[in-house]
Each structure stands twice: as C-alpha cells, then as structure tokens.
Amino acid sequence: MTKADFERLREYIYRESGIYFEDNKVYYVEKRVEQQMEKYGFKDFTAYLGALRFDSTGKMRQELLNSLTINETYFFREYEQLKCLAEEVVPLWCQNGAGRSGVKIWCAGCASGEEAYTLAIVMQEMAPDILWEIYATDIDTEVLDKAEKGIYNHYAIRQVPEVYLKRYFSPLGDNYTISSLFKQKVKFCQLNLVDDAGMRKMKGFHAIFCRNVLIYFDDLSRRRVALHFYQALEPGGYVFLGHSESMSRITTLFKPVRFKNAIIYQK
C-alpha cells in the first residue's frame, strides 16, 4: 500500500466511523485490507476502494470496519471506576428518583460484552430492588454476535471474583457462559458513534460508560460524540471514561466530579 493509498483509505474510514489511524498504523491497516482484498478477489487497491465506496449493501464496508476495530477487553477491567459505580453512584440512585423510576446505563463501544455484563453484575449485586437496564452498542457486528452468545474463555473472566463466577457463570467445556438473567437485561445493538441519526435516538440514560474508545477518534469526532452523550443523559447523569482519558480536554459541557474511587463527569 502506497502512502497515497493509505491516506485515501484513512479518509474513507474516518468519514464512515470517526476512527482516525495515524501514520504509524500503516502496517496494521495494510494487513487487514490485504485480507479483505483477498477475500473479495481484488488485486488492485484502487478497484477495492471503489467497490467499498459503491457497495450498496454496506457488507464490504462493515467487514472492513470489523477487522479494523480493536476489542481488547475483559470482565472487571479498571476496577476503581466499577467500585465508584457500586459504592458511590448506585447508592445515590437508590436515594433519589432514578432508583424509583428505573436506571438506564449505556455501554458505548461494548466490544464482545464483557464490560456490559460486568455492569449488570454490579447492578444486580448493589441494586437488586430497583429496576435497571443496560444498552450496549458497538460498530463491530462480529463482536456483538459474540456478546449476545455470552460465552467467554478463561482470559476474559480471570478477574471475576470467585463468588460472582459461581453465582453468574456456568462452565461450558473450557469456557464459561453468562447467566441467562443478564442476557435478558442487557440489550445489544449496532451503533456507529458518529452516526448522528442513530445517536439522537439514544435518550434517557443515567450513566454512560465509554472507556478507552474515544482514544481512537480525532478531536472533532470526540467533541461530536460528547455532545451526543450530553443530549442522551438525564439531568445529573454521569459519563465514565477510561482512567487515562479526560472529558475536560474534549468539551466543557460536563462537570468533573471527584468521588473517593474515581473522577467521572456529570451533566
């Protein structure tokens, strides 16, 4: 892939997904594009890019995006934020109207479901008497299929406390399957975070988890997504970003709130 080819493809990917690949990602992108070209029988990059642009079904575009998204995740990742949710935020919900009317949490960029199901475990343990539901979205259709199946290997569940492993997982050969209770309460669907029409449909949330996702976006796309998050939240709702991320560097819409276990951002 020439430098010009990479730049053309990078612009296409950015326009379609909001994800921006820096120059040092040429090899990463090139290997995945070569796999897609081989799959569809293309030997010429320009012909492949043209087919991508004019594919009316969107199948080729989706398969390329699936191959390019990074899905490193596991249960109970970044524990201090989960502790903040469990010990500080959930009790606030239980005391106010959110607990009475029901809590909605959005896991944005959910990958194969580990984070969404982790949030479900936290809610079930800490707030069993209030109504709650979790919406989990990702651009990658392949990982969403895995999430809905709810089957995980030992690596994915390595940080699950033993008591929760026994309570909410069942052995399945060398793997584990998540409780059917959570398969009913966690709703998975595809969503592109820079799809304005789709994002406007996301409403009424009390918390949004979007951890280690916006790091793959450029500044303009981050601000665009942050505005949608603001509009999707109920008054006083929270955004949880990755521990190395800062909403204050993206927008002034949110107020940083320092809890004992984490800093999160409030509408």
Rank of each mutant, 00 (worst) to 15 (best):
Q159R: 04
E133Y: 03
K149S: 14
I130C: 08
P128H: 02
Y135V: 15
A156Q: 12
D138M: 09
I139V: 10
I134D: 05
E148I: 15
T137M: 03
Y155L: 15
E133N: 11
D140L: 06
V143W: 02
H154Y: 08
D145Q: 14
N153R: 06
I139S: 01
E148G: 13
P128T: 13
E142K: 04
K149N: 13
A147T: 09
P128Y: 00
V160K: 04
P128V: 12
K149L: 15
A156P: 08
D138C: 11
Y135T: 15
D129H: 05
G150I: 12
E162I: 09
I134V: 13
Y152Q: 10
Y155T: 15
E162H: 03
N153S: 09
N153D: 13
I139K: 01
P161A: 09
D138V: 12
I139G: 01
Y152D: 14
H154V: 14
V143I: 13
I130W: 01
I139R: 01
P128N: 04
L131E: 11
G150C: 15
V160P: 13
H154T: 14
I151W: 02
T141P: 00
I151E: 13
I134H: 03
V143R: 00
H154G: 03
G150H: 09
P128I: 13
D129S: 10
V143T: 11
V160I: 12
D140R: 00
R158K: 13
E133M: 10
D138G: 11
T137I: 10
D129E: 13
K149D: 15
R158P: 12
D138Y: 11
L131N: 05
W132E: 05
V163A: 04
I130G: 02
A136E: 04
E148Y: 06
Y135I: 15
A136V: 11
T141W: 00
Y155G: 11
T141K: 00
E133A: 07
E148F: 04
Y135Q: 13
I134C: 08
K146T: 13
V143H: 03
V143P: 07
A156N: 07
R158H: 08
D140I: 12
K146P: 08
Y135N: 12
I134R: 02
I157S: 00
D140W: 02
H154N: 07
K149R: 12
E148V: 15
I151V: 14
V160N: 04
Q159D: 08
H154S: 11
P161M: 11
I157M: 01
D145N: 12
A156L: 13
E148H: 05
E142I: 12
L131Y: 04
H154C: 08
W132R: 10
A147R: 08
N153Q: 04
D140T: 06
I134N: 03
V160C: 08
Y155R: 14
L131W: 02
A147E: 03
A147W: 02
D145C: 14
